[in-house]
């Protein structure tokens, strides 16, 4: 299994644990992730506020380069990048006029032959038995609230897989890793995304609702598939506590970190020591 891989701008900054754990898990599963040469920002969170055309052209440059790699499928861990790439791909493959216009803007020809998959979808399309075969340290007894947020599952005509209101693909993966996936109501509630940067006062109220729901269900930790969700739920957890007087202490993992742990990858290699909310209590729980 080979994929053209789009790291996304958070890959060696805020989302570096995601990047590290993605490569560790891919190696275990025999997935080859070939980085798109000289990839550039997909424009997520900003371009859609400024120009319809820019919003397609920024991801399109990457699609054009990826198409030249002759691999056929693109994947990325970041939910926001995934949506940008998938949206540009859909618009450009379905509408010749848009494709010509965007190609003129980028100066690179994208023919529209690629398939874009999120990393969860890419890993989820591996035979479950093959994943299970790699699990050497099952996360027995660990209660996980799988949080999907928005961009992985909505709008369904772009994301096009699983149920947009009650997705299960990450829950299923956590079960393969031996954990207990909780049935809870806030799986797809928005965490505020970039409001965490521009209007923290609004974002903390949104984050609070999600953390509260996970705590009430008795979650030991949460699991996410997006650096933005992680930033808001992990980094801003302190802001929530400070501004709203709460006392959350909820570890938040990337799904690849928990898969990696179950596959016997060391916590250091997975980057578990650089979270803002301490992960130690979960690490001691799963030994």
């Amino acid at each position: 299994m080979r994929y053209a891989y789009f790291p996304g701008c958070s890959y060696h900054g805020t989302g570096k644990e995601y990047e590290a754990s993605t490569h560790a898990v891919a190696k275990k599963l025999g997935m080859e992730l070939v980085t798109i040469p000289d990839w550039s920002c997909c424009g997520a969170t900003a371009a859609h506020g400024k120009s319809h055309l820019l919003n397609v052209a920024l991801p399109a440059r990457n699609l054009a380069i990826a198409e030249g790699m002759g691999i056929g499928e693109v994947t990325t861990g970041c939910a926001a990048c995934y949506q940008q790439l998938a949206n540009a791909n859909k618009r450009m493959t379905e509408n010749q006029e848009i494709r010509d216009k965007v190609n003129k803007v980028t100066g690179k020809e994208y023919k529209g032959t690629l398939k874009v998959k999120s990393l969860v979808e890419a890993i989820g399309s591996i035979d479950p038995e093959q994943i299970k075969a790699q699990v050497v340290k099952p996360l027995s007894g660990l209660k996980v609230a799988a949080y999907y947020g928005c961009l992985l599952v909505r709008p369904p005509e772009i994301t096009g897989f699983d149920d947009p209101e009650n997705p299960m693909f990450m829950d299923n993966m956590m079960k393969l890793a031996g954990a207990e996936a909780l049935d809870w109501a806030h799986k797809t509630e928005c965490c505020g995304a970039s409001l965490g940067v521009s209007n923290l006062g609004i974002a903390v109220k949104m984050i609070n609702k999600i953390l509260k729901a996970a705590v009430e269900k008795g979650a030991d930790c949460m699991v996410v598939a997006c650096p933005f969700c992680h930033l808001n739920l992990d980094w801003h957890q302190k802001s929530v506590n400070k501004q709203l007087g709460t006392t959350y202490d909820m570890p938040v993992f990337y799904f690849t970190e928990l898969l990696g742990l179950a596959m016997g990858v060391s916590p250091d290699e997975l980057g578990l020591k650089t979270h803002f909310t301490d992960t130690q209590k979960v690490l001691s729980l799963v030994g």
């Binding site: 859609h48 928005c150 909505r154 709008p155 369904p156 947009p164 209101e165 928005c190 995304a193 409001l195």
Partner: peptide, 9 residues
């Protein structure tokens, strides 16, 4: 608007 598309869905 956080562009979460809950409304659209």
């Amino acid at each position: 608007c956080a562009s979460c598309s809950t409304c659209s869905t």
